[in-house]
């Protein structure tokens, strides 16, 4: 297959390296900012070599508001994933067995709903939550996260469910097991890996969510992305602290993201691409 001209090979390598730098350098810059002293952060010309200090991390983790935000983010993300699984796993199971237009329309419908910009939903929730005392509550935030996580999990699990062997569940059905028993005793053990991957991806989406949190939980149940924005508003020059907090939010998202990257596409686009 050595039909590729050398000039083009060189071009591809150049592009690959430039792109790699484009991705990594900004990230490295943020990371370095989090371990720079304030003086070094604003040094002109920029200091590439400096004595690292972890003072900013100390400040971030010494800040009670930030610690509360970590707790809130964990509660909301975990709650949202758990509730989404409870609703989406049975649905994906049903979609494995259901045939005909019901299946098609359900999958299509939830895909379209996922594509609607979040701002459309935000206004009615704002009005309703003010009336229903759901403003600034964990459960209020968990409920809105279902809007994107239930479709995500259904779309991720449907192709995986189709790919696992079905002889066992069919045998169980023939032996008289109800659909529920088959789900719990046969399908769920086989789907463990897929469900774990879907949970992780859903967790990342909840963990990263900003828009709903900004409006529906500004004061009491502040989550991490909003807490960081508060740093920006109240301590505008504390860039080391902002960078350290950013690193803390982004690291788990990237680490867990790597684990599930294979599954992402079907979850994000509902398999609208063949592959």
């Amino acid at each position: 297959m050595r039909v590729r001209p050398r000039r083009i090979t060189a071009g591809l390598y150049t592009f690959a390296i430039v792109w790699g730098l484009f991705i990594l350098v900004p990230f490295a810059w943020l990371a370095s900012l989090s371990i720079k002293s304030r003086l070094d952060a604003f040094a002109d010309p920029p200091k590439l070599f400096f004595t690292p200090t972890f003072a900013a991390y100390g400040e971030v983790f010494g800040d009670p508001a930030f610690l509360r935000a970590i707790g809130n983010s964990l509660i909301v993300s975990t709650g949202a994933v758990a509730l989404s699984l409870l609703i989406a796993v049975p649905a994906a199971y049903a979609l494995r067995h259901i045939v005909g237009p019901l299946r098609h329309h359900t999958l299509l419908g939830i895909l379209l709903i996922r594509m609607v910009p979040g701002m459309v939903y935000l206004l009615p929730y704002f009005v309703f939550y003010n009336k229903a005392h759901l403003m600034d509550t964990h459960i209020g935030l968990i409920i809105v996260h279902l809007i994107f996580n239930v479709p995500l999990i259904i779309w991720m699990l449907t192709p995986i469910w189709a790919a696992i062997p079905h002889d066992l569940s069919e045998a169980a059905r023939i032996d008289g097991a109800t659909p529920f028993q088959t789900l719990v005793m046969v399908d769920l053990p086989l789907m463990k890996g897929g469900i774990l991957a879907a949970s992780i991806l859903a967790f990342i989406f909840s963990w990263n969510e900003f828009l709903f949190a900004l409006i529906l939980s500004r004061r009491e149940v502040v989550t991490l992305p909003v807490a960081i924005v508060n740093f920006l508003a109240f301590e505008g020059t504390e860039w080391g602290k902002i960078a350290a907090a950013s690193m803390f939010i982004v690291t788990p998202a990237i680490v867990f993201g790597f684990l599930v990257r294979r599954y992402m596409i079907s979850g994000l686009t509902g398999g609208a691409v063949k592959g």
């Binding site: 963990w207 990263n208 992305p225 960081i228 950013s246 982004v250 990237i254």
Partner: peptide, 10 residues
């Protein structure tokens, strides 16, 4: 793939 997992706010 790194940017895909970045919280948009970060």
């Amino acid at each position: 793939i790194i940017p895909m997992f970045f919280p948009p706010i970060v």
